[in-house]
């Protein structure tokens, strides 16, 4: 991944935040991690002038205030923000959720593994993919 650009993690569970941070550290991913605990916060960050636009957004679905789906709908309606790839990272396996998420234009849907080692593997794959894939050259 373009190591200069931050990764935005939208997640309300502290342990999950720690897990992602730890996994990124274990994988020696150099991108800075920006953390928001809900959709509102994340939007505020994205709309704040001067903030670096993230190269990837890791999004949880069940969050207070503005949940993942609501957040998705807002940024996919935004001309600038809609180019940022969003990977959903959630515990929900529900078919209904998956369909709705893809309808809203996500780049991926990953179910959080309960086991940390598997979790690290999942993050490694995501990192690998987005290192390989070209990203739109935003600002």
């Amino acid at each position: 991944m373009q190591s200069s650009k931050p990764i935005l993690l939208v997640e309300d569970d502290d342990v999950d935040v720690m897990t992602v941070k730890r996994a990124l550290a274990d994988l020696r991913v150099g991108n800075p991690l920006v953390h928001s605990t809900n959709g509102e916060e994340a939007l505020a960050y994205l709309q704040q002038q001067g903030n670096h636009k993230p190269c990837l957004i890791l999004l949880d679905l069940n969050m207070p205030k503005m949940n993942g789906v609501e957040f998705l709908k807002v940024i996919k309606a935004d001309k600038v923000l809609k180019t940022i790839p969003v990977v959903v990272l959630t515990t929900s396996k529900s078919e209904r959720d998956v369909t709705e998420i893809f309808e809203n234009g996500v780049a991926g849907y990953v179910v959080k593994p309960a086991d940390y080692k598997k979790f690290v593997e999942a993050i490694r794959t995501i990192n690998l993919y987005w290192s390989l894939s070209e990203l739109p050259s935003g600002e």
Partner: peptide, 17 residues
């Protein structure tokens, strides 16, 4: 499934660490 599993996963992760 969702709400009970989430904290449980946290407990497991922390215990592992």
């Amino acid at each position: 499934s969702h709400d009970l599993k989430a904290p449980l996963r946290g407990i497991k992760t922390l215990a592992d660490w």
